[in-house]
Amino acid sequence: MLPDHESELIKGAQKLHLNRRRFLTMGTMGLTASLFPSLTVAQNSHGENKPHRIICLDYGSATTLIELGLPPVGVIAAQRWNFWVREPKLPNSVADIGQDLVINLEAVSRLKPDLIIMTPYTTSHKPVLEKIAPIEIIPLFDGQSQPLSASREITRKLGVLLGMEAEAADYLKSFETKLAAARDLVAKRNYPSLTLLNFMDARHARVYGVNSLYQNVMDEVGLINAWTGETNYWGFQTIGLERLASEASEDMELVVFEPLMDDIKPTLEKSPLWKHLPSVQNDRFALLPPVMMFGMLPSAERFLSLILSHLESRYS
């Protein structure tokens, strides 16, 4: 094991002077390796021909790579990471490559990636990006499979692709363990049904249901989604608040995820329809930090832990 490891380090050191960004990346990887001994294997089992400079065109795959211990070298809209994703933290080494539909090709090209991961949403980039590096389109929100099962499958596949089968398996295992623990907890408690919202403006919100990552997670742990209405391809429906009032069940818990624009709260506080919602009147309403709603397992995990700790604080 050791000689292998050393040679890897030497190779790394040789690359150091080449490029500042690369240096930073290597530094982070070294740091990760020393903090988490189990991950050192990742660096070792990482064959020469396996990709290790990866660019992600969606937040979901980026979070997964971070959890697997091989953060991407570049991700779209890194500036906005804390606004939409927040956890897991984005390492400083990760470069910003622009917006998801207008990525900066010069920036991508200079990062010298050896793999570019994208979802069906950004496949319009494929013909151009193919010139830079091999493309992997992960079937997340492809309209066929459910996001959670797709995420599991993709995580496994990424493990194979990156020569990190063991890490992927470990991560999947720890995810399933958390899911099982959550399932046990939910079975013991008598939690109310939930309505999950993102506000678009003071009058309209996205509500999540069938086809969403949230719905999948809730199904697996036994939580009940109060919103049973129709949803679109990505698992949400944009509705007016009136609609929320008419289809709200009496005892549901209303969960609003950030981001929440500054001007929404004061407007809501003046709106009779909102103020008189049973959930709001009975203080069955919570504002939780952001979770990437179109994410993968790390977002599912974050969603679950945020929801459960909120429910526990109220209904245990």
Binding site: M200, D201, R203, L241
Partner: peptide, 22 residues
């Protein structure tokens, strides 16, 4: 300013939807 997108779009297109007498 993508985060504002949906909100201003709905409003800009002249939505009469109301939730109070304000």
């Amino acid at each position: 300013n993508d985060r504002y997108l949906a909100s201003l779009f709905i409003w800009g297109a002249g939505s009469l939807s109301q939730q109070s007498w304000d």
